[in-house]
Nucleic acid binder design. Structure first.
Length: 660
RNA sequence: GCCUGGGUAGCUCAGUCGGUAGAGCAACGCAUUCGUAAUGCGUAGGUCAGGAGUUCGAAUCUCCUCCCAGGCUCCA
């Protein structure tokens, strides 16, 4: 019998007996690798260890402590979850159970419409540990569609998937079976079989470092109109330490949650008297907001924007013309009907107002590009389950601008705009970006194919010009045009969609906006919608979490607090305060009614960048003691002049005492 | 909007079997005058989210409403 030759990831070759499996290969490389191996990647395709290797294949052994290894063990853990649920709820229907970021989920429909409660999670987890202890092998088998339908005749979701694959498979469904002509399944014991492409770990004994996190409702196939299933989320890792590290990281993320910090730092609140998604900003949160807005304004002045304002309510006519009432009436606050029968709406968007400003008189091509900016407060009736802290609210302020330009100007204008956006975001301390291009939404778009493809290709070219990674978001555009969005990674690696830039050929048409060009004829302008923060509220929330509440000095509500050691130092402390205020520094003092340690602790918990302590030495020689945020080593005997220039430099350069 | 879980003092939370409300922090008062993350003593603070029901009696059990959290759906 001839041997077979395989190539390893490092380029080296191995010769194995015909019929050898990936597990045989792992054993040939080393006993340790054979013990760790979970699955294999053969010619870039994940497979089971037990699958025979084809001659000439490129093979990588997948071990637990890798992204692919975790994906396999998470997927296998999802199967064990389903098996445990079918043990505890005989007759339960199981739908799909993929691996996801950090874990897995599985969707179920329980007999008699029963629901999981939080208490059930512990029971299910116990049952899962039993299955792990039973060391059940995952066994793959392949069947015809007819046999597959017979095997799963009691599992309606599986039947639906098999039938969907048979009649022209979607990508999503293909992921559940071997390919478009063969149904693959995995069974542990005869007791449990699942439809699955695999691969899986060799045995349930290879699992164990998991935790069920929560139960949630989820619509079958993500469709609101289809039955709601019971979803269980879990996390799974390759080792006890990795699981513990993940749980610790979740706790860390919770500590920087902007809703928690908003409460602890007295920044904002959501009084229940106002209703869901409606925030009030307290003085400290108001200061952060004002600094953000002031800085944005100054950059927009420099960027050639003009400032406009528009009212919060309007007759329905405006949003009938714009098309918003047609598309988004459900998420607008209901109309206010006036005595004369006229309907007024709270505005969910600023753009139609800016079009009216454009239309208020004849425009010349010499005025273009015309850039109108407004901090425009809009109201959207978000579904009750959608509101979330400051990131999804019902009343918010957009840093909204609309640029009117010619088709010829469009490309240059977009390029400089994208650079303007990225510069501004960097000034707020975000540095790690990628771009997303959202294209025409099927069945929910207006305008001709030609306009859409021109708009999309223009945006793609511009996005490509700034040298950032570009991801395609098929069908994610607005009804009137495609968009580029800037995605930013924060300090703990989460990504947030920030700025959006949208191209719009439709609105100028709907409003019949025009300008007089050099040829003395009227032409239709192009409109570019753009928001950099998105909303001031949401951007503030992202910054609070990015900095864990330790705002850079220029944004800190209180930048300096001066503390006298005893109350006979308070006069000197007040002199320091008065001197710093001349430079516009936000500085306060706290009288020496309490021990110094208590006052320092309070200032530290308020995350004030600089605490200045002044005592006998300082009064005598005109110096300061500096206790900087993030430091446990106070500096003594610093002159006022030294501290002043250091502080002012740091504010001007948007720095932090921690030197982030 | 849907699913699961929650709502007790300004904040964080305890409250047993249904017997009418507790702590720490914060606030306020008095004393304390202190060199880098909690000085001591005292005072005040509650329609137990709101409403209805069961009960001799409800923070506790039941129902409805509001709000919050985690998901699903949605996000111009």
């Amino acid at each position: 019998m001839s041997d077979l030759d395989v190539q390893l990831p490092d380029g080296s070759h191995r010769t194995l007996a015909q019929g050898s499996t990936a597990l045989d290969l792992a054993a040939a490389i080393g006993a340790r690798l054979a013990k760790d191996a979970l699955a294999a990647e053969v010619n870039s395709q994940l497979t089971d260890l037990s699958a025979p290797l084809p001659d000439g294949a490129t093979v990588a052994i997948i071990t637990p402590a890798s992204e692919k290894g975790r994906e396999v063990l998470r997927h296998s853990t999802a199967h064990v979850l389903a098996q445990a649920v079918t043990r505890l709820w005989p007759g339960a229907h199981y739908a799909i159970g993929p691996a996801i970021r950090d874990g897995f989920y599985y969707d179920f429909s329980l007999p008699g419409g029963a629901r999981f409660s939080d208490d059930d999670l512990a029971r299910i987890e116990d049952e899962m540990r039993k299955i792990v202890g039973e060391n059940q092998p995952f066994t793959r088998s392949e069947h015809s569609f007819e046999d597959g339908l017979e095997l799963f005749k009691d599992q309606p979701f599986k039947v639906e998937i098999i039938n969907a694959v048979r009649s022209g498979a979607s990508e999503e469904d293909l992921a559940e079976v071997a390919n478009s002509s063969v149904v693959s399944t995995y069974s542990n014991t005869p007791e449990f079989r699942d439809l699955c492409r695999g691969p899986h770990v060799p045995s349930t004994a290879r699992l164990g470092f998991f935790k069920l996190m929560r139960v949630a409702g989820a619509y079958w196939r993500g469709d609101e109109k289809r039955p709601q299933l019971q979803r269980i989320y879990g996390t799974a890792w390759e080792s006890k330490d990795a699981l513990a590290a993940h749980l610790t990281q979740l706790e860390e993320a919770e500590k920087r949650d902007h809703r928690r910090l908003g409460q602890e730092l007295d920044l904002f609140s959501f009084p229940s008297e106002l209703g869901p998604g409606l925030a009030v900003f307290h003085p400290k949160g108001g200061t952060i907001r004002r600094v953000m807005e002031d800085y944005s304004r100054s950059r927009h002045v420099a960027g050639g924007y003009e400032f406009v304002n528009s009212p919060h309510i309007t007759k329905s006519e405006l949003f009938e013309t714009s098309g918003h009432l047609e598309w988004f009436a459900d998420s607008m606050y209901p109309a206010m009907e006036l005595d004369d029968g006229q309907n007024y709406y709270l505005k969910p968007m600023n753009c139609p107002f800016h079009v009216l400003i454009f239309k208020s008189r004849q425009r010349s091509y010499r005025e273009l590009p015309l850039r109108m900016f407004e901090f425009g407060t809009v109201y959207r009736y978000e579904k009750s389950g959608a509101v979330h802290g400051l990131t999804r609210v019902r009343g918010m302020t957009q840093d909204d601008a609309h640029i009117f330009c010619t088709r010829e100007q469009m490309s240059d204008e977009l390029t400089s705009l994208l650079n303007f956006v990225l510069d501004l975001l960097r000034d707020f301390g975000l540095n790690d970006f990628y771009l997303e291009l959202s294209t025409r939404p099927e069945g929910k778009a207006v305008g001709s194919d030609e306009e859409w493809s021109e708009a999309e290709s223009t945006l793609a070219t511009v996005a490509g010009s700034v040298g950032l990674e570009l991801v395609l978001d098929e069908g994610g555009g607005a009804f009137y045009g495609p968009k580029i969005s800037v995605q930013a990674r924060d300090a703990i690696g989460r990504t947030h969609q920030l700025s959006t830039i949208q191209l719009d050929f439709q609105t100028p048409q709907r409003f019949e906006a025009s300008y007089v060009a050099a040829d003395n004829a009227r032409h239709r302008p192009i409109m570019i919608h753009r928001a950099l923060f998105g909303s001031v509220e949401r951007f503030m929330a992202i910054l609070i979490e990015h900095y864990a509440g330790n705002m850079p000095t220029w944004m800190s509500p209180e930048q300096v607090r001066v503390l006298g050691v005893r109350d006979d130092h308070d006069d000197y402390a007040n002199e320091v305060v008065a001197a710093l205020r001349l430079d516009g520094v936000r500085v306060q003092t706290e009288a020496a009614n309490e021990p110094l340690g208590a006052r320092i602790r309070r200032a530290k918990m308020e995350k004030i960048p600089y605490i200045l302590v002044v005592g006998d030495d300082d009064v005598a020689s005109g110096t300061l003691g500096i206790n900087a945020r993030g430091s446990n080593h106070p500096e003594r005997g610093v002159t006022f002049g030294q501290f002043r220039s250091r502080l002012l430099d740091e504010i001007a350069s948007h720095g932090s005492p921690e030197a982030l």
